[in-house]
Design a protein around this nucleic acid. Sequence first.
DNA 1: ACAAAGATGAGGCGCTTA
DNA 2: TAAGCGCCTCATCTTTGT
Length: 577
Amino acid sequence: MDGSNSSVDDNDVDWNTDDEIDNFTLSPSSSVIHPRGEANVLSWEVSSAPSSPNTKVLDQFIGMGFSKKMVSNAIQKHGEENTDAILEMLLTYSALESSTHEQKQMDSDHFSSDYVESFLDGFSDMDSCDDEEIISHTSEEEKLMSLITMGYTEEEASMAVERCGHNSSLLELTDFLSAAQLAKEEDALLPLEEKPRLKHVHTDPKKKRKIIVSDISKRKRQMGHIDTDTETLCLPNPMIGFGIPTGAWKSNRILPKAAIGPPYFYYENVALTPKGVWDTISKFLYDVPPEFVDSKHFCCAARKRGYVHNLPTENRFPLVPLPPQTIHEAFPLTKKWWPSWDIRTKLNCIVTCYSSAKLSERIMKLLEGCDGTPPERVQRAVIHECCKWNLLWVGRNRVAPLEPDEVEMLMGFPKDHTRGMSRTDRYKSLGNAFQIHTVAYHFSVLRDKFPSGINVLSLFSGIGGAEVALHRLGIHMKNVVSIEISEVNRNVVRCWWEQTNQTGNLIHLADVKELDANRLEQLMFSFGSFDLVVGGSPCNNLTGSNRYHRDGLEGKESSLFYHYFRILDLVKSIMAG
DNA sequence: ACAAAGATGAGGCGCTTA
DNA sequence: TAAGCGCCTCATCTTTGT
């Protein structure tokens, strides 16, 4: 009976009501209420309580990779409550620090990349630097501090050092700043979008880099004002963006001037972030509003995501054949065991954590204890667990979590794409990946534009969702520069690249922080410019699943978004120049 | 063979957002 | 009301180094 029931559902999948899979109401009696003491999970933004002295803020920023000394300076200057200003200051300083470091690094190219990677990872900790560097760095830092105490902002100070040279005197710097004052006042009258971006192009790529960082600060500061008095972005219902394959939907949007390519860019992250995050992301990415899409309109699992991109939205086409649209289509064997009171037709979001065998056992015991149809109370409790953990019915009274290869299928990856990784790693990497059909639908407009193929810069590549989507669309990848921190993920992409007989070049880098202007120019010199810059930066500090470090866009991992912006902006400026 | 280090599995952990 | 590209600790199993 359940089978026929759901096939009716299958035929009239209703794209207009948003959440058919969200329609379960569970009585609170079925869930255990944990009486709780005080909430001890405090983000650094709210740690100004007397019980938490500024070591908390200090630790937070040190945890983000800034040196203790820099953090203490910043806290001293701004006060521990003003975390935004602290962060801004730290960002500016670390840009300076990394450029001095990179200069040194360039002279010693004989290190292995692994060595460099670990070295770079640790370098922001001042304790690990040699004395010489500390001395030269400190003097520059002190110069900056002097300017700041004179009332200039961090970005003004660093800009001045940049323009006047690192050996310039304090007097020269103040001269420069006061001369710049008039021009700045005029400049301030123009809205940010109208300003010529990076028109003050320097020939030295190192300089470009720092100007961009001050640009970040400017945007951040502006966001601070905007945030309070403008509305935050709303999630659309239904969440179908500019259209889905199964429903006609036309929309022509006008992109802000600064957003128009080349290159095309495509940025992805979770839709349900803390407030203001998407506003910030959008502001940085040239004021392009995100396209929010739930992948349940493409496959049988939900995946609510925001995509900021400058791709055309007309004449998209889906990958064919369309993937299974319902649980029963995707897992026909479960039909036999699916109870009629479990009315799910779509799964919830594919995540990185899965339930244990013990839970399945408990559920089985619970159901076996009932004669015939379980009472509603039991039904609700079971459904609650099924929804929470995306469980399938695999036998009488038996539920089970998805297997890694089933997740591969749901996400649209080729079978065995992640085979060979540990089970946990497979879940993790797949849970962090693109849903291929969704992304391919958005990428499809590129096929006719680039008949001879494209050059791709793929940041936070993971297991290569973007590459797989492009390949499935028949878009030839001439050169792919893929940046991914996890070695196992890089291996997956490398194997896939070989197995699919790609004729283009795959260049792998480990860390987005390694990709500076010099490296980019070098790459772009060797094979031409990038046609697509794609990436989804870490979401773990944004997602609601994270109960410990949902610190927003400034969180340890999620702040890597700023590297996406930094690199995209570098590519744009190199291509413009 | 043994201990130490590493890997995996199980279970517990709030809170924001719409 | 429910969903959510997660994290931490502990226990146990596996691998590595001596």
